[in-house]
Design a protein around this nucleic acid. Structure first.
Lengths: 225, 225
DNA sequence: AGATAATTTTAGTCCTGTCTAATATTACGA
DNA sequence: TCGTAATATTAGACAGGACTAAAATTATCT
């Protein structure tokens, strides 16, 4: 994850790199996908895709989308690492609440240096996951293995532990926290309704939760051991 | 120091506001003064002075320099507060060395929110001074009273305590730290040579320090009680 | 006071990153 | 497979911030 002699990409460029990384499954990111994620016009995305290509950070084929080069991927993961470490710090040391850490980290990740990042990792004890359960890339970009699946893809009767909540909306996160649907919570799935994807799951206190498809998709769980 | 409904000035605008504040004694800041401090061309400064005026952050009279309005001053002090709190945090919690905190804080001050700042102040115990002895403005912009004077302006025979070191150059700071010329150090002034402003002072260990005029000007001391 | 030096401003250019409107391409449903 | 809907791209504009070169103003020194 070195950065030898290379100019730091601007915050904008960094945001596009992250968006491409998050949007592209294992292929190329679409213009619209990135535009929606960044709340920016499609024209802006087309423009940036071309620039990322010139900068050697992405491969771009018109109408086919963009995918990161090794360098682009390294840069994206560096930002993701910063973001998730900062979120952890905000929650654990500054008393931020779960739903507020994302926004602050979003700005800070572009301002901190590698030195800051590594010192922060040290202070935090080199955590593997952030407060939402998202894996924190190592300083060389390595991601811890993922053993989770979305709640929406489980089967009735299964017993799980919430491992991650993938949602940036503070209002949604506040609600989920209120319901106790945070990483670590044990759940037993009662029903995954084929009709509309609504999932019904019961927590250890016997409380039943009914979750619409989008929510069920953003809650990741892993099998209980 | 509120920020109600007001768009956050960009990092650039913020840097100019700080530079005007630091440059203008109790009058107006000159184009060249600000240009030198920010390492930017004079033309850029003229341009920004005009824009600050339009934004209501400064008063600008061509060829006469710029001075901050109440709003501009409040914004500048807000950044200074952030900067100095961040420096303190870097040194005390992340293990940064004295000479490295400035550069990192310079970037971070534009990325943190008021909420972050106040939580950080809380974590640090609401310090009144940063690691270099510079006063930290309160959240309402109030500055602790200044009882210091530059070492260059003292008289031979006086006994002082170093209260502040005003220099951003890491190389200079490293040297001063090596000599023990940091806030808290007791000094007895031996000579302030009229000829060239060179100051000779002795510390408690009996070590004698000879300081050129520029250095002597950047070291602030207060009378020993 | 006049000449020269220092400082400032103006004029014009450039780059980044955004937008809208118009056009082109691809995907999809009948 | 054809027509419409969705997606993408191009073209052109604009704001923020920076620069250089040239012109103007102020300061300084004899």
């Amino acid at each position: 994850m070195g950065n030898l002699g290379v100019t730091q990409p601007s915050a904008s460029v960094g945001n596009y790199l992250k968006a491409v990384w998050e949007t592209a499954g294992s292929g190329a990111a679409s213009t619209k996908g990135v535009a929606d994620r960044l709340s920016v016009s499609s024209a802006s995305v087309t423009n940036m895709f071309a620039r990322l290509q010139v900068m050697g950070l992405a491969l771009y084929e018109p109408y086919r989308g963009a995918s990161l080069t090794r360098r682009g991927l390294a840069e994206a993961l560096r930002l993701v690492r910063r973001h998730r470490l900062i979120e952890t710090f905000l929650l654990e040391h500054l008393g931020y609440s779960w739903e507020d850490v994302h926004e602050e980290a979003e700005r800070l990740e572009h301002a901190v240096s590698d030195e800051f990042t590594e010192r922060l990792a040290e202070l935090l004890g080199h955590p593997e996951r952030d407060p939402h359960g998202a894996p924190i890339p190592a300083s060389d970009g390595a991601l811890p293995p993922e053993d989770s699946q979305p709640l929406s893809g489980t089967e009735a009767g299964g017993r799980f532990i919430v491992s991650r909540v993938e949602n940036r909306d503070p209002a949604v996160l506040t609600s989920l926290r209120g319901l106790g649907l945070v990483p670590g919570r044990a759940l037993r799935v009662r029903e995954v309704r084929a009709l509309d994807g609504v999932v019904t799951a019961e927590d250890e206190g016997g409380v039943s939760h009914v979750l619409g498809a989008p929510l069920a998709r953003s809650i990741q769980v892993r099998h209980r051991v």
